[in-house]
Amino acid sequence: MKENELVEILRGCAARKLPELDGLLGILRTTEGAAPYVFHHCEELAGLVLSPRYPLGGIVRVLQARYPKARLGVVVRACDLRGLVELAKRGQVAPDRLYLLAVACTPEEAQHCRCQRPVPNPTGWPQVEVLGSPAAAAEAHPLLVQNERLGLAERWAFWRQEFAKCIKCYGCRNICPECFCQACALEDPLWVERGILAPPFPTFHLVRAMHMASRCVGCRQCELSCPAHIPLTVLYELLRRDVAEMFGYQAGEDLSAQPPLSLSLTEETTPLPNP
């Protein structure tokens, strides 16, 4: 299915659903450009589009904090849905008041993003409608394949070179729908010396990478926001594979599965399996 056909189907569903909702979060295109917007009226839906993609999960968090009782609709892709699942597990969004219109990405889009999971998987999400036809998983990023073949020293050298370009905009964190901490370790001089460009290697990027383990859902927003073109999704995908291998956990796939690195100090915790 082509994107324009999909958009028509989406507008139809949105028009049907909108009267039951207090608002629908999606992308509005006007003559000035396209950006996130909360739709209230069916007449506005002529401007509802699917791209460019913006990190809607973070916006849902802000909207629900201000309007905890509102019934909010959100137009999501597979990765947005996974992101909302992880946010829900961490108490950042309330799934029972979120109605999702989940759009499957087209094969071209999946290929463009090198997405391994382009089809929305609503396991456990209370209210969700899936639109579009499933596309196959894309081939892995060539850099991912290359990284897996590299020895430790070469991998280290590769990432050192990539991170030397970093201009410390914090864009990877700012745009990330899963980054919601009030106090961020990246700004703490205990971990990362301040005011240095490029930021100290490897602490800045590896501290962030560790914090993304079991959280990153591969939406690519970080990489697309990086002025230095650092292939961050490759780094986080490697980490996601480790988490899957060590803990059998896939971020964003199942609302009821507990993330392994979110520990509760009041409940008994399961020790790590022996290597």
Binding site: G33, A34, A35, P36, P52, R53, Y54, V62, I167, K168, C169, Y170, G171, I175, L224, S225, C226, P227
Partner: peptide
């Protein structure tokens, strides 16, 4: 908040600090 403009010809969805 601030969001980078994804379709801007210069910044292309990116910003500095």
């Amino acid at each position: 908040g601030v969001l980078p403009a994804k379709e801007h010809p210069v910044s292309q969805g990116k910003l500095c600090i």
